[in-house]
Design a protein around this nucleic acid. Structure first.
Lengths: 204, 204, 204, 204
DNA sequence: AATGAATGAGTTTTCATTCAT
DNA sequence: CATGAATGAAAACTCATTCAT
């Protein structure tokens, strides 16, 4: 156990350092573009040496990739937890938007991931874009379920409904990110909720 | 040839050079971020010397500002021409989206302006953002007029309707820009049109 | 002619700068290994900015490649001038060794090329090695001619004779380079001359 | 288990680790220059931690020095065993070349030593060079003995004969090292043997 | 106006070496 | 003895900007 405990302790230390660097990267990348952000900014923000940053991530692209991965993980987590909730499909879809909006406005690392997608070196582009496509598929699935459970009543094709919902959500993200650093994103989504309800479940 | 003619000819030449550089800047900035784009890329793309680029624009920020100005000018042009059209306010609003989508998908300089807004040095941010706010005001105005002329029947508050329309449009821009360099933006807007009509003028 | 003269003058300046950098690279690379040599050393030696070095050569490998090219050019020049000389083939072969030895001991850039061959990034290896193979072919050709004109009387196969001559010459280069920076290479070759004569034209 | 046995076991383990690192250093240094080779490459190649490498060798120069020592030891071993052989001095000299060629082509650590000599930090240069001088003295001694026992019949001065033999051998090493990682060195020496015999013992 | 060479102030990256465990 | 994380100093490379012509 001496040996084993030692190893574990060392790993712990490394993991903690890596995490601290990752969070710092999140803060830095959420404030500025990929190219504007200097790795020195990140290591300074973390209070850890630049060399250590390289030890843990290898190069700048890999730092960005790690941020992207962490973002997607956190968003997927919200997605899973909300989707498995009780309630109508429409309700869950809208709750999902709320949940993600909340996450984005509160988590610099997630904000960083969002910014990063727009200014990524080519090799990382797919990694970022793929997530957007998946996200729209989730919306479409919930809408289809909503058509079955009666919570969605629009007669429009599900893919097109999903597309518009997705566009609206992305637009809200971009505009709130631009205007106030995502602080008002939840409020925006709150305001949009009745509009989306009207779209998916018109009173008729 | 007299002095005056010569001067005029030189000016003509200068203007043409400036234009060529501006278009090249559009092409380059539409393909990559502000920081990724090198002034050498632009002068190479234009086939004009780097020194000349500096002669005409002074520095990198000014190149971006010029691109932004040109973009806004071209978008404003579409805006004016569509708004002054005959027809219902709702129709004009939706035609406006069509028109702008068309412009974006066809004009690299306009695409460049859109990209630039997301990755601008701080001093230029307001210049880019202001346009977005104005754009939403136009939507709101048209919606208000639609309420008067009966083409808009939704009972929701005009500002909130304008906000959602704006978000959807921006979202469509971002997604099409991301996925295929804005090629499919007009098709996206076409698909979204019935959804936006349902939102603004529910059958009921 | 104004325009043209101007262009020519500019080019001249660039060419002169490039040459100065190349010679400096020769001096530096002749004194130390590729990896030990810093580009700053070269630009300092030339009294020209590091940025300018990059402007002219792009990167470190390309500097080395340029040195290599220049070395091969200079050696080829000697080769041509000696080979076209009057006299027996054997005489010309041995004069060639003399001539190259002289060149090596006098020209830092050529020394640099020799050193570089031993410590080259993989992409450049072939470029350096090829020259050695060609060099041996020349020796073989001269030996064959010597068999015809009677100046070479050894009954051994020409390729094997050429190989040994080549090995001896290379060995002399390496040892003199190691011991005294090629200063005594001509003397070494002078001493070896009767041995090589004995080898190629034994008295019988 | 008692204290002493434990200590001995630890020592054994340490020696084995040191050896593994040394062999790994041989493999790495035989593939690349001193400066190109990273200590991490060596510890990775050995599958042993970098910290351990430092524990056993102190610093990079010391690793190189240890490789050099091991090379010289192995070469000296061959030298001794061949020189003490029965037979003519000329035969022993040529057998010596064969033996060393064989060793070089088979032993990465020896190859490493050879490469290292060409790219060594200044402090280690003498250590590497000295061996070359000694090597030539051995050749000269054998040639002198050959003059006495009649196996060497050339009338040229012994030092000059030794010099040429040495040059040829070094040249063969360099060329085979360059072309194919010393795989064909024994064959080269085999081919050169009759030439060297002709040189040292001309038929007359 | 136009050109392209030149510069310097960063930035990314590398790696020998040290250190805590 | 052994490990692997951490560090700092150095080097390669980039590029906006200036300058001489």
């Amino acid at each position: 156990m001496n040996r084993v405990g030692e190893v574990r302790r060392k790993q712990q230390r490394g993991i903690r350092t890596r995490m601290a660097l990752l969070e710092a990267a999140g803060r830095v990348f959420s404030r500025m573009e990929y190219d504007k952000a200097k790795l020195k900014d990140i290591s300074d923000d973390a209070g850890i040496s630049l060399g250590s940053l390289y030890f843990h991530f290898g190069n700048k692209d890999d730092v960005a990739a790690a941020v992207l991965d962490a973002q997607q993980e956190r968003m997927t987590e919200v997605l899973s937890s909300v989707v498995e909730t009780e309630g109508s499909s429409l309700g869950r879809l809208l709750d999902l938007l709320d949940g993600v909006a909340e996450l984005i406005s509160a988590d610099a690392l997630v904000q960083a991931g969002i910014r990063l997608v727009g200014s990524l070196p080519d090799e990382l582009k797919d990694r970022g874009y793929g997530f957007y496509e998946e996200w729209q598929r989730v919306a479409e699935t919930l809408i289809r379920e909503g058509l079955e459970d009666g919570s969605v009543t629009s007669t429009a094709p599900a893919p097109e409904l999903a597309e518009v919902v997705h566009e609206t959500f992305i637009g809200a993200q971009v505009l709130s990110g631009m205007m106030d650093g995502w602080q008002t994103l939840p409020a925006r989504i709150e305001r949009a909720r009745p509009r989306l309800e009207a779209l998916l479940a018109p009173e008729a």
